[in-house]
Design a protein around this nucleic acid. Structure first.
Lengths: 347, 347
DNA sequence: TGTTAGCACTCTCAGTCGATGAGTGCTAAC
DNA sequence: GTTAGCACTCATCGACTGAGAGTGCTAACA
């Protein structure tokens, strides 16, 4: 069976209506609302075909039809009018992404808020992985007796503080010596690389200056084993918007959904970081069972050519794909520009 | 009308039963479950009195009674067995609060998680206000051209980074001079005080070294106007636990509750920071309408004698007050000890 | 051969009705 | 002061019903 023009028209009409009404829609309604020039009976026949093709389905015998995941997929790929942004949305995005920025955290939370606000859906934003940035240099500053502030600067501009324990008797010059050694050795490597391969090299270098050894390696401990290092935080915006979606009128569904929201790992999996550009994941195409009734529109963003994060919009499969795609697309474009132009934003 | 011994017994029985069952409870049930040595009819008469006293109420004519806010209040103040901790809970709290800690943030999130886990309710933790800590000193470190890292150390041990813009031509020594002036002037004052009263003094001091003036005041801008400064973040733990409470089976209630959760300001108001020690706020005693069906058990904690934060447990008015109070009480005790003993924890 | 009208059938939804059961308040007896 | 008895109230639940929406099938039509 082939998809002829009329079938396409009917499928498009059905999906568009369902997206806004969230109600199953029957042949009669389509005939009334959309001027296809044929009678309900004909539409019935066509709908029967569409169902056989797996593009629509019936919740129960005497209800109208609703789109299946495959139906949405067909719609997104072939039927939908191309994503276009409303002017006021466009302006809003531009206004929000042209601020002068001090911290990337700020950008991320801001973006997250913006996306959920524009779409009335939930937004998911994944920022740069802390451990990933390559090491540039470190400084030591005095702190309490027996402790020092270690300031670590990454090549991507990130700055971190760590309080480290030092012996009571370690002098400032000694710390400086250690810093010099570490800076020389570690420059240009990521902390993960340091952890895996470089440690013994540093070790042997420092062995020559016997007395410094003990402290030096202990100093590195907090930055190498920092919990935050590995798992980047995922920002969620407008989670409550989900409660307004009729598909989540059921408390059990809300529970499982919110449960999944609490686990950063789950959310991270929603954002397909491997694929560049705009990605649409519809319902069951997603691996996670908790989100089988949801679709995700996501895109990655870059700093200096390298993919460092992703933004996404999460909604019920019944969502306005065109609008969501337009918004995600434009937002990442602006984000890329913002991160490129702002002179070396501290990450 | 007076509260005689039998009325107390009945009220206690009713509340205890209601706390675990969440169902209105009638005279017959009380007579059966609790051995008071009187018939349901007698209990009925007493219950009628209790209702007149405003301690219990009837959801509808032919249902049993449930405690009113005033009833819970009476229960907490006079009837409840004194808060006692189960041994395993005690051990769990001790285990979690004797870790060596590096960051107070960590302690806060950890505590929040612990509390919600122990009670199966929602926990609210309010950490130290960043802006409050008195200024100790600052350092400058090199960063990108035209920018520097300003490291600010507070007297309570907090360390913060800020990237500041400096003229391309400002030399390290000049920065040092500025730092020296600022350190001398600002030491011992909170940033808020600096902002309000000290700025013009610093201004006139620096005016004498004309060339430095422009930069110096700009440098302070980020720390004085930092958004985070004023509003300390509120940590919420186990918000989902609320969904398991039968009183929140209604989606509308969930919506308003979670809406309130999203606003830090609202949550902050729940924790009575003005009162020291263990505080119990029952239902409508709370000012916020969103939480009129909730009770809060809260307590403040201190660092060095000064109240810096608060922890609280939020649950439906129908909650196990004894247990919750015991847990909050013990947790804050341990927290105080932890923060006192760990030698100058960085905040 | 494709389209349409007609029709019987299915299924959900909202509303009604009555039975059930828990609980109360009142009265009168103990 | 306490209790048994009783009439009354009210929410809940299941069964039933009619309305409405929608379908699939058949037969007629262009």
């Amino acid at each position: 069976m082939q998809m002829d023009e009329r079938k396409k028209k009917i499928l498009r009409a059905l999906i568009q209506d369902y997206i806004s009404s969230a109600e199953p829609i029957g042949s009669r309604t389509i005939a009334r609302k959309f001027d296809l020039g044929v009678s309900p009976a004909t539409i019935r026949n066509e709908m029967s075909d569409l169902e056989e093709l797996g593009l629509i389905e019936q919740p129960h015998t005497s209800a109208g039809r609703i789109p299946s995941d495959a139906g949405y997929r067909y719609y997104v790929d072939f039927l939908m009018e191309p994503p276009a942004l409303r002017d006021d949305d466009k302006m809003l995005i531009e206004r929000e992404t042209t601020h002068r920025i001090h911290e990337i955290q700020e950008v991320i939370t801001q973006t997250s808020k913006l996306l959920s606000q524009l779409t009335s859906l939930t937004s998911v934003v994944l920022g740069p992985q802390k451990g990933k940035g390559t090491f540039s240099r470190m400084h030591f500053l005095p702190y309490q007796p027996g402790q020092a502030i270690m300031v670590v600067v990454k090549e991507n501009g990130a700055v971190e503080n760590h309080i480290v324990e030092i012996g009571q008797d370690v002098a400032a010059e000694e710390l400086q010596t250690i810093a010099d050694v570490l800076n020389r050795k570690m420059h240009g490597y990521t902390l993960n690389e340091v952890k895996r391969t470089l440690l013994h090299e540093i070790y042997s270098e420092l062995t020559r200056q016997r007395s410094l050894l003990d402290s030096a390696l202990e100093l590195l401990e907090p930055i190498l084993n920092d919990q935050d290092q590995e798992q980047e935080h995922v920002y969620l915006g407008g989670a409550l918007n989900m409660l307004n979606q009729p598909e989540f009128r059921d408390l059990e569904k809300v529970k499982t959904l919110f449960k999944a929201f609490e686990e950063d790992g789950r959310l991270k999996k929603l954002l397909s970081m491997d694929r560049e550009g705009l990605t649409v994941t519809i319902g069951g195409e997603n691996k996670l069972a908790e989100f089988k009734d949801c679709s995700v529109i996501s895109a990655t963003f870059r700093v200096g050519g390298e993919v460092v994060g992703a933004v996404g919009i999460l909604g019920p499969t019944r969502m306005d794909y065109s609008k969501a795609m337009a918004i995600v697309d434009y937002t990442t474009r602006m984000l890329n520009r913002l991160l490129r132009t702002s002179k070396r934003t501290p990450l």
